[in-house]
């Protein structure tokens, strides 16, 4: 499914001079350890590393105001979180090629009920009963980055 996200292993973006890491929580911090270390050790001139952990949306927005065109971003956390941050980064003008995402922590999926528009989080099965309208849904692989959720349609 072309829309289903594929999460490649994080690699340090050597075309950038600054690296900002955004972690949802401690699980995500662990997932980012290696690459943060690589960034700190990299010897590109003016290289700078910044790590944001479990920060509020307003803190992230303020941080983005300070960043410049030479920055690469790495985001780790649950699927819905990382795509929310992805959307904020894109709205702030970050190029798609400058954002890398990693799943960490709870890997269960969010499901968008096509019938009532509700998004339920932490769905582990491929079927799910919508918590709002009660429809039994099949969870498809068709994913929306905007909603941060997979499409659920009546079985």
């Amino acid at each position: 499914m072309k829309s289903k996200p594929v999460y490649n292993p994080l690699t340090l973006d050597t075309s950038a001079r600054r690296h900002v890491f955004v972690a949802e929580g401690q699980d995500a911090v662990a997932a980012l350890n290696d690459i943060v270390y690589a960034a700190e050790q990299s010897n590109t001139a003016n290289s700078k590393v910044r790590v944001l952990v479990a920060c509020s949306e307003s803190v992230l927005i303020d941080a983005l105001q300070m960043e410049e065109m030479d920055t690469a971003f790495y985001v780790a956390g649950a699927e819905r979180f990382i795509w929310e941050v992805h959307r904020m980064l894109r709205n702030a003008g970050v190029a798609e090629t400058r954002i890398q995402l990693a799943l960490a922590g709870n890997v269960a999926r969010s499901v968008y009920c096509i019938h009532c528009g509700t998004i339920d989080g932490l769905v582990e099965d491929t079927t799910h009963t919508c918590t709002r309208c009660g429809t039994v849904l099949v969870v498809r692989d068709h994913f929306s980055r905007y909603h941060g959720a997979y499409m659920g349609v009546r079985a």
């Binding site: 075309s15 001079r17 600054r18 590109t44 065109m69 030479d70 920055t71 090629t97």
Partner: peptide, 10 residues
Amino acid sequence: AAELGWPLDH
């Protein structure tokens, strides 16, 4: 731009 660390798609 590349030397300054820009992504070239900008």
